[in-house]
Design a protein around this nucleic acid. Sequence first.
DNA 1: TATTGTTATACTCTATAACTATA
DNA 2: TATAGTTATAGAGTATAACAATA
Lengths: 161, 161
Amino acid sequence: MTDDTDALAALDTRAAFLLSQLGAYTAQQFAERLAPLGIRPVQFGVLTRLRNADTGVELSQQQLSEALGIHRNVMVSLIDSLEERGLVQRGAHPSDRRAYAIRLTDAAHAVLGEATAAADALEEQLTVGLSESEREVLVALLRRITVEQGIAAGVHPGLAG
Amino acid sequence: MTDDTDALAALDTRAAFLLSQLGAYTAQQFAERLAPLGIRPVQFGVLTRLRNADTGVELSQQQLSEALGIHRNVMVSLIDSLEERGLVQRGAHPSDRRAYAIRLTDAAHAVLGEATAAADALEEQLTVGLSESEREVLVALLRRITVEQGIAAGVHPGLAG
DNA sequence: TATTGTTATACTCTATAACTATA
DNA sequence: TATAGTTATAGAGTATAACAATA
């Protein structure tokens, strides 16, 4: 075994490198699968957060920013793009005249369905070589790391502003 | 359980989301650990590739670009910055007068030692909650995914140009 | 006085094309 | 004719500061 092979093998035995490498690959693949729907992963995150809100609860841009770890300045153009795309509407906020109440349109629910199917397909693509129990072991280990590292559920650092 | 909790839990049961989330976090942590050394992850990749080269083999910028999946235009300023930092030198290429032979300096070997220590510390930080056998299971599963997806060993998509 | 949404600015990254010198 | 290195340019993304309206 040459020095070169040793060193390359060493990279592949580091969880840190593999996580970073696979994370970038996965994000790229997801972006490509979302592209035909006209949205990017960060916009999918906004739409998902809005869908997950309890019925009757009005989310402002500020609340969306905090929930997703995105700066409120960035949220402005993000909501702009979603509004132009016809996926959200800026409505009057019931209790704060400074804020907007961001609401999903019917078109957004349709797009969310297709985006969820894209996420399912990607999950299948990534774990095609694993048995169901292996997939569960992987997810359990990854979840334990996120908990240990204090990463909030559903908050993606790569989308942070 | 509310709709909100269901949906958040669902994100955390997707290997794809966890990989993307943890990958971004890991890359961020590594960048922060490298910052005191005055280099970024992509520069660490270049230095590592140079160190891994067989003794006597001269690597050109073009060869580095191909090995790391970075565009050659980007490699120019990358080598510029490493040269200004005193970590590499552009020497005459022995067999091609169009190309440079990129060589590591003594300072680079020192920095590589510290960077490797930083990578070790990050590996420890990420896997502190896992037993040694759990860490091995995780690495084995991640490696199988990279092989299945056709991701070349040591090539990081996030550094691609 | 603090907060919501907004805009402007600058800085970094990235993607593309084109140029030169050599092969 | 193709390749190695370089430069210029434009676009995207990000970070900071500041502003008007409202709390």
